[in-house]
């Protein structure tokens, strides 16, 4: 299929992109295009104007300094998957997105802004308590990942704003992160995606963050699971027990389709929580 026609502008800087965005009503930002172009080809999306930010140098690259890692919005999944400075769970998550070709073009910024409930990166970024740097006509702001995702395909990003970078804390020793995913056999999207970040000290879990994707209209923080993990010696039985608490987090609004009904996803949630937490614990050392 072929997209509708549109007006195309290439921005060479963030400020130019913001200015172009604000000059054109309904304009959309084009980064890697791996969420947008497929929708445009099926004529499900018809932006009259596209602002291509793909060549803005400032938005590329991963920089680690002072205990934080800043990931430019245009960093591809492929680069993220190969990075040794980002938390292991994040590179692992990026490696499960789509396929090699999609990872070579798709970007962290694009994935985050699209806020597909079946996406992978949002889940892990919320678990890592990432913050998102946003530039707009009135200046820059930072929002936490958890606050950023407001619903299915809905975010805190205002019209005219661009997500420029994602910031996560360095993974300290004693902390481990992991992602476990039930793939949609056709599309490769997450039907259940669980991100877990745990910190272990003296054999016990001191901090835990578990987040669910694919299950609900927007990423969901599994605080019941995290609460059940903290203060406990993490081994097979205690992890399994904590994982069962995910039912308290899920609520009634679980997604379902021909590949996996809501009942099945709900039943699989603890399995994948268990796997993600166990892997994170192992990485925490």
């Amino acid at each position: 299929m072929y997209p509708f026609n549109f007006e195309y502008h290439k921005a060479s800087s963030v400020s130019e992109a913001i200015s172009l965005l604000n000059q054109h009503d309904g304009a959309k930002v084009l980064a890697g295009g791996h969420s947008l172009i497929p929708a445009m080809k099926l004529r499900l999306s018809d932006p009259g104007v596209l602002i291509d930010i793909g060549k803005i140098d400032d938005l590329h690259g991963i920089n680690a300094s002072k205990g934080a890692v800043t990931i430019g919005g245009l960093t591809t999944h492929s680069d993220l998957a190969a990075s040794i400075v980002v938390p292991i769970g994040l590179s692992e998550t990026a490696g499960t997105v789509g396929d090699q070709q999609v990872r070579n073009r798709g970007t962290i910024g694009g994935s985050v802004v699209h806020a597909d409930p079946a996406a992978d990166l949002p889940t892990m970024l919320v678990a890592l308590r990432a913050s998102f740097h946003i530039s707009g006509p009135t200046g820059n702001r930072t929002v936490s990942a958890e606050d950023f995702f407001t619903g299915m395909f809905e975010t805190d990003l205002e019209d005219g704003e661009i997500l420029t970078a994602v910031e996560v804390a360095d993974e300290q020793s004693g902390t481990g992160s992991a992602y476990s995913k039930l793939f949609n056999p056709a599309s490769g999207y997450a039907m259940v995606g669980v991100a877990a970040v745990v910190t272990v000290a003296s054999g016990k879990c001191t901090e835990a963050s578990v987040v669910l994707g694919g299950l609900t209209p927007s990423v969901m923080v599994a605080s019941s699971v995290a609460d059940s993990l903290v203060g406990v010696k993490l081994e097979e039985t205690s992890i399994a027990a904590a994982a069962e608490a995910v039912q308290n987090d899920l609520g009634s609004d679980v997604l379902g389709d021909i590949h996996a009904s809501a009942d099945y996803r709900r039943a699989m949630a603890p399995v994948y929580v268990r796997r993600a937490v166990a892997a994170a614990v192992e990485r925490a050392g």
């Binding site: 949609n184 056999p185 056709a186 599309s187 389709d257 021909i258 590949h259």
Partner: peptide, 23 residues
């Protein structure tokens, strides 16, 4: 194990693309 051409009750092909038909 995987493939299934699925119609809903209104006769729409739910597995109408490679995103939903699992070869």
């Amino acid at each position: 194990l995987w493939e299934h051409g699925v119609y809903d009750e209104s006769g729409q092909l739910v597995s109408g693309s490679l995103l939903d038909y699992a070869i």
